[in-house]
Design a protein around this nucleic acid. Structure first.
Lengths: 174, 174
DNA sequence: GAATTACGTCAATAGTGCTGACATAATTTG
DNA sequence: CAAATTATGTCAGCACTATTGACGTAATTC
């Protein structure tokens, strides 16, 4: 764990620049943007003793009511054990209910309750406000649809094999 | 922690839709995009026994060589204690060196070593590739600069009071 | 000289992720 | 029908990143 040898290791005093296809500017903008984007719901969640994991579960159960546990794991790309804790808490607090699968009785379909729906909307509100404001602030005014541009870009950033999953989720226009 | 009362809580069977200014579509796209975006460097970091916190520190020390500890804390918005561990590891492994501040000897200026610069570039490479590919895939071809649009949007998503900090960082065009 | 600042460190805690193992019930397969 | 597989739940233990609060030291400022 120690720096090899005893000679002084030379500090590099020049900043890295965006060269050779290295895009530090967008990399760090993405970091800052996502951090502030998630900070909005974080404050609300804290009041419930919940964290981001709860938010994500609540979000997707609201977006796809009747999801099974396996499907949810596949969307979130986490393990059963990681999901178990947060899902149990959301069920115990009456935000989500489990319903035995109609065809396959081993499955548990997950549905939001009115309480769970309300919380999901409360969490989405400040994030939506931030997005709307950002689109408005950054829009060029003209014909160019900032929203369409951003939506295309974000989707293209997702691993190709996962894009099919996204298309399952409800969307307004398209 | 238990759902109040004994009556069955009704599951809501309809999916939430994007209405009343709620933008679920972009919210979840942002989640998916950021998750995959960070998965690239995560694999490399694992080889070093490092995590995302190490990546962030290494990134900003490379972007602003000579940063003091206090400045780094201000950029990352974490506590001294959270930084301490990861910074110590990066110093012990010879990725970052501390130099006593020239004016104020209490300060420790942080600089990357050649090793630290190399790792920062290795981590930025797959992320930059993903961004470039996404911009290309999503670009409309025409005159519209997808990159400019995305950069404006991401910057507008950041809390206004923090945007000044971003402008300090080196950038190519602008 | 006293207060403040910059930094380091210690102890304790929380949230979220992981692996591996095991149990149960239901469905599918041979 | 018996056996294998699948869907889910649960237990134990671990890792990483973050938190708060407290304390110490050295350097600077007032």
């Amino acid at each position: 764990m120690t720096a090899s040898m005893s000679e002084a290791i030379e500090p590099i005093r020049t900043a890295v620049v965006d060269e050779d296809g290295i895009d530090f500017a967008l990399i760090e903008l993405f970091f800052f943007a996502y951090r502030d984007f998630t900070s909005d719901p974080d404050e609300i969640l804290a009041d419930y003793g919940f964290g981001r994991a709860h938010h994500r579960v609540l979000h997707f159960v609201n977006r796809r009511p009747g999801l099974t546990v396996a499907e949810l794991l596949d969307v979130l790309k986490i393990t059963k054990q990681s999901l178990a804790r947060v899902l149990k808490q959301l069920i115990d607090t009456g935000h989500i209910v489990q319903v035995q699968g109609p065809r396959d009785r081993r499955q548990r379909e997950l549905y939001p309750t009115a309480k769970g729906r309300a919380l999901a909307l409360d969490l989405a509100r400040p994030q939506s406000r931030r997005i709307a404001q950002a689109l408005q602030d950054s829009g060029q005014g003209f014909d160019v649809s900032e929203r369409a541009c951003v939506e295309r870009f974000l989707k293209a950033m997702v691993n190709p094999e996962l894009r099919a999953q996204i298309d399952i989720l409800p969307h307004e226009s398209r």
